[in-house]
Design a protein around this nucleic acid. Structure first.
Lengths: 213, 213
DNA sequence: AGAATAGTGTCTCTCAGACATTATTTG
DNA sequence: CAAATAATGTCTGAGAGACACTATTCT
């Protein structure tokens, strides 16, 4: 029998780093980590399963979800025929601790040993996210509702893994027309920074040129 | 029970038009068209099922295949719980008539009425193909092993649905470095045209700027 | 010779990328 | 006033897009 499930690559910015949520069977002595997920119920859509997993794992109902790829090689899970429809999830803002027992956040670029083909899935998700960041506005999904331009730049840098020029970043992100200034500022050390928000009317896919080629 | 299957959007250039392969139950009086596909066997990978369907439908073993999206809404196929993993297939050159009974090529942009959500799937496949054509070399998959630049331009125009400037097209496609000239020419009416071929060492994804933004 | 198709070059304008200084606030 | 962070503008080079004529072959 073919078992159909949905697995998730849940990503979040925590302390400026891109982290991924992994689960382990608390029973076993050697920790074996895996992506969260669950079997698909008879009457659930794939999207609904992904959403339910997201809520179960993080307690948050806010999050961006996107279907990534479906993995169906007969040998990918030894002893069973499991087909996994994998979703990529981005959580807004620094998420709290995982709500699910055995769940923990890990550095997305240097995860522990993962079960099955989950390491390949994670790497693919990161590649796709980096790629997507270059020509869509999906990066905003990792931040709070309002944010400073520096925070936004840090988010992009965390995902892309490289430093970006401050002036060029601002010029491009502002000319893309997907964010707009608010009247609020974030204070702290140094000069206060203006807060921005996503524009409601911003198109998800930035039609124009890539943002970061 | 959840039924898992693979369906295909098979596209081919026929008489300069982009056409899609559809199947019908020859028994029924009112033709009801659908995308070709089949159930996933216990020991088959999804890719293998797609490849097998491609061969069964067209008799050709040459073809580009790429996983497109997995459709799993409980209501998409009335009375059954069917999850479809859909592959996009591009056939090289003008394909012959379909090998499968009930199969026929149709104008991809103006298909007949389709069963289930297959119309939405087809439209999504076309959108993705057009989008992908802008920044990858995937367009070559619709042509023979060697081709003239005019043929290549016609292929791009057929998919994109718009006319392209001859000089700009040539400049960009040549500077992309994915094709190379052969010593052969195609003769016919008018001046013979040089034949080109794909470069074996061409990267699938053109890293540089989009070809046709 | 005429019809048909192949093949080629330039200019302009926009945008990406590199780069350093001034402005505002807190302690 | 020192430390910290925010905010801003210019120059240069590459490439996209618009555009028209010459070259070669066949009948």
């Amino acid at each position: 029998m073919i078992e159909l499930r949905v697995d998730l690559v849940l990503l979040s910015l925590r302390a400026g780093r891109l982290e991924v949520l992994l689960e382990t069977d608390s029973g076993s002595s050697v920790p074996a980590w895996r992506l969260p997920g669950s079997a698909v119920g008879e009457r659930q859509s794939l999207e609904a399963v992904a959403q339910a997993c997201l809520v179960a794992a993080t307690g948050s109902t806010r999050g961006y979800l996107e279907q990534l790829y479906t993995y169906g090689d007969p040998a990918r899970v030894p002893g069973r025929r499991t087909v996994s429809c994998v979703y990529l999830g981005l959580l807004r803002g620094a998420s709290g601790e995982p709500k699910v027992p055995g769940g923990r956040w890990h550095d997305a670029s240097h995860p522990p040993r993962l079960l099955f083909d989950h390491r390949a899935i994670l790497d693919y998700a990161l590649t796709r996210l980096r790629y997507k960041l270059e020509y869509t506005a999906v990066g905003f999904e990792l931040l709070e509702a309002t944010f400073t331009l520096t925070e936004l730049q840090r988010a992009y840098e965390a995902v892309l893994g490289e430093a970006l020029d401050k002036r060029n970043f601002r010029r491009r992100i502002l000319s893309a027309g997907v964010i707009e200034p608010t009247r609020a500022f974030r204070t702290g050390e140094g000069r206060p920074a203006r807060l921005y928000r996503y524009r409601d009317d911003a198109v998800a896919e930035v039609k124009a040129r890539r943002l970061f080629p």
